[in-house]
Write a protein that binds this DNA or RNA. Structure first.
Length: 668
RNA sequence: GCUGCUGUAGCUCAGAGGUAGAGCACUCCCUUGGUAAGGGAGAGGCCGAGAGUUCAAUUCUCUCCAGCAGCACCA
């Protein structure tokens, strides 16, 4: 082939165009039509996303990327918004250092270091930055790629006082082409690209700066903290507006807000990170607990209860003291000094700790008496109340607390029983998540850097979990199968269940972990068929994860409108006139006798007022009774989310309510 | 834990260097009214905690505590 023969460029429809050397995807677009040239924002050359103006280097398959290729277009636009943001910030606040600015799931951010003369940027300054961004977009500055030598680049950043960029330029992998992008002729950033042809391809009405936050340089707590400016960015205003609306929807179902409005629980300073469950909230908890007990009773588990506080030496032996102490609540084993002055604790008492996990206690139960291989698998379940002293900034409503109750169990089994146990667990988890209307993805979290146990054991453990899921046919794209390096616990790899809720957010809740470390450390053993002692494998598993968190997720998933079987108040009997009070009491009594959670509302208020109040409280069924209903022995039922009423007899109403109030696992 | 913001009545929020206000909720009175707010009156606050500046601090400053948004961690 001669060195200056044209390149053959194959288009998606199979047609081939000959293009001279130096030609780019943009030239192909221009050759097809001027309209296409205008619409092209980037290109996929042999599948790789590149600048539309990047010259071909050989024969290639070409796909011209336009706004119709939404995923690519969004990614490009968001990345460009980030650059425009950085340019705008430096324009308004000279002396600001720039660092990184990637695209995110719904937009972009850029981490910057404000000039030494001032503090972090504030949200009040965002509108001015937005204006500057719009000006840059309207100026339609061409984005031009250049390749620089490392030395030139480092020097350029040093001269510009860009210490972070200089550091990064020095550390980029050898052999990598170092590219910069010019925005017009007056601003540049170091970036791998690709980018849109010019800033004018962005829609100035399709982004919004959302907030500022702190973020560490290169994600490390030991490094300088930068100001991160977050924005949301889209292809057009319509998409932006839709996104803002979604955010409002999510805010409306915030469990902290609904928890207060529905009087489910509260949190307060004196016990921060621990939950005060109110009567209505705890009804949901009890219903969940009863549901879970039925599930584990039917699955061969034995429920146990273990101590809240154990000697620190026990935690040393289990390894928690070494690896987990910073998160443990430690207490002295002594009577506090009661004199007015003087220390409350002497400092020389033995230390005890609140349990951060239930596992060691379950091993201690296992160790009582001599276990035979015939006893395995032994499945010990506990509604275990744990305390963890979490970093204060991590606490978040019910989602991250310092005291929580797990639906925790440990399955002690032989190696050859693992796959079966893991598969049974997958089936149980599947049934339960579906009962709540969740879909889920399963992920395998692999060994972390900080860990116990030999590599050989980790190999085995990871393979067992992987094989169980593969053999169960769940390691597929449909189940969102993925492996997450470094995400495992310090003692074991984990299978994780990531739930997707009603508005598409994901939550990690369930897990099963195969552990060889703890049985070894705590010397658990059983007598095998051969008469010798063997180590059992310990499978740690949970389905709700914690009641607190799962309840928080449920509140947001259902937006407070719980299914009837879970809802705190299933029906309210509300009177129109006081003459119906006695009848209302009779109706309520009949429902209560049938196990329906029912309340009466006999207040001297208009029915409009009562309807409004109970609707806002998300009571699923309102049974309205007046003189007419009392005379006829009927009720007028108004169902949440539906217009109008249904008149029925008490017996009919009771049958309907009983059917709806039956938990999903008890339905025929 | 880090950065920024916030902390006033049960809730949502105004307010100002001279010890406080609204709406909803609450209590009482009137109203007995057919499916999303009937009317009136009343009660309710150590203005997150501590220190400083000031004649005077809830208001300004500092320190702590808690909450919020991120980060870093994690069920």
């Amino acid at each position: 082939m001669s060195s200056n023969s044209p390149f053959n460029i194959t288009l998606p429809d199979g047609s081939v165009r000959e293009m001279p050397h130096g030609a780019s995807p943009m030239d192909v677009a221009a050759a097809i039509s001027p309209g296409l040239a205008k619409a092209v924002i980037a290109a996929r050359v042999d599948g790789e996303l590149v600048d539309a103006t990047m010259a071909f280097t050989g024969d290639a398959a070409l796909h011209l990327v336009t706004a119709r290729d939404e995923a690519d277009a969004l990614e490009l636009a968001r990345h460009d918004f980030a650059h425009v943001l950085a340019e705008a910030v430096q324009q308004i606040f000279p002396g600001t250092q720039i660092t990184f600015g990637p695209a995110t799931d719904d937009g972009f951010y850029y981490d910057v270091m404000p000039p030494a003369s001032r503090g972090a940027f504030t949200e009040d300054e965002l509108p001015a930055i937005e204006d500057a961004m719009r000006a840059i977009i309207r100026a339609d500055k061409p984005l031009r790629r250049e390749v620089w030598s490392r030395a030139d680049l480092i020097q350029r950043w040093r001269e510009a006082g860009e210490n972070f960029k200089a550091e990064w330029a020095a550390e980029l992998p050898q052999g990598e082409e170092l590219s910069v992008y010019w925005s017009g002729d007056d601003w540049m950033d170091m970036c791998r690209g690709p980018h849109l042809p010019s800033t004018g391809r962005l829609d100035p009405a399709a982004f919004k700066l959302m907030r500022v936050a702190g973020a560490y340089w290169r994600g490390d707590q030991k490094n300088a903290q930068l100001t991160r400016i977050y924005g949301t960015g889209w292809l057009n205003k319509k998409q932006l507006d839709a996104h803002l609306l979604r955010l409002e929807e999510a805010a409306k179902r915030d469990h902290r807000k609904l928890g207060q409005e529905m009087d489910l629980f509260h949190l307060q300073q004196e016990a921060h990170g621990s939950v005060f469950w109110h009567p209505h909230g705890f009804r949901i908890w009890r219903e969940l607990e009863a549901y879970m007990r039925r599930a584990i009773d039917a699955s061969g588990y034995d429920e146990v209860k273990t101590p809240q506080v154990m000697d620190a030496r026990q935690w040393e032996q289990s390894g928690h003291w070494g690896k987990y102490r910073e998160n443990m609540f430690v207490i002295p084993d002594e009577v506090p000094n009661v004199e007015d002055e003087g220390p409350v604790v002497s400092g020389d008492a033995d230390w005890m700790a609140l349990k951060p996990m239930n596992c060691p206690a379950h091993v201690l139960i296992f160790r009582q008496g001599i276990k035979s291989y015939r006893d395995l698998p032994l499945r010990l379940f506990e509604h275990g109340c744990c305390h963890r002293n979490e970093p204060h900034g991590a606490l978040h409503g019910l989602m991250r607390v310092r005291q929580f109750t797990q639906d925790d169990a440990h399955i002690f089994c032989r190696e050859d029983q693992i796959i079966r146990e893991v598969q049974d667990f997958c089936a149980l988890a599947d049934r339960i998540y579906k009962d709540f209307g969740f879909t889920y993805a399963i992920k395998l979290a692999l060994r972390p850097d900080k860990r116990f146990g030999s590599d050989a054991d980790w190999d085995k453990a990871e393979n067992e979990l992987r094989n169980a899921v593969v053999q169960a046919g769940l390691a597929t794209a449909e189940y969102g199968w993925a492996e997450l390096p470094g995400e495992g616990a310090f003692y074991a790899p984990k299978l994780e269940w990531h739930l997707t809720d009603a508005i598409g957010r994901t939550w990690q809740v369930g897990t099963i972990q195969s552990d060889r470390v703890l049985p070894e450390r705590l010397d658990a053993s059983y007598i095998g068929e051969d008469g010798a002692r063997h180590r059992p494998i310990m499978l740690h598993r949970a389905i709700f994860g914690s009641y607190e968190r799962f309840l928080g997720i449920l509140i947001e998933h259902y937006a407070g409108r719980f299914p009837v079987w879970l809802t705190p108040v299933q029906a309210v009997v509300a009177t129109i006139v006081s003459d119906a009070d006695a009848y209302a009491g009779q109706v309520a009594a009949e429902l209560a006798a049938a196990g329906i959670r029912v309340e009466t509302d006999l207040r001297n208020e208009k029915i409009n007022y009562k309807v409004r109040e109970h609707s806002l409280a998300k009571v699923p069924h309102l049974l309205v009774v007046g003189a007419r209903e009392a005379a006829e022995g009927k009720v007028a039922i108004r169902t949440l989310g539906q217009d109008g009423q249904r008149i029925m007899t008490i017996a009919e109403a009771l049958a309907m309510l009983r059917a709806e109030a039956t938990p999903p696992d008890l339905r025929g």
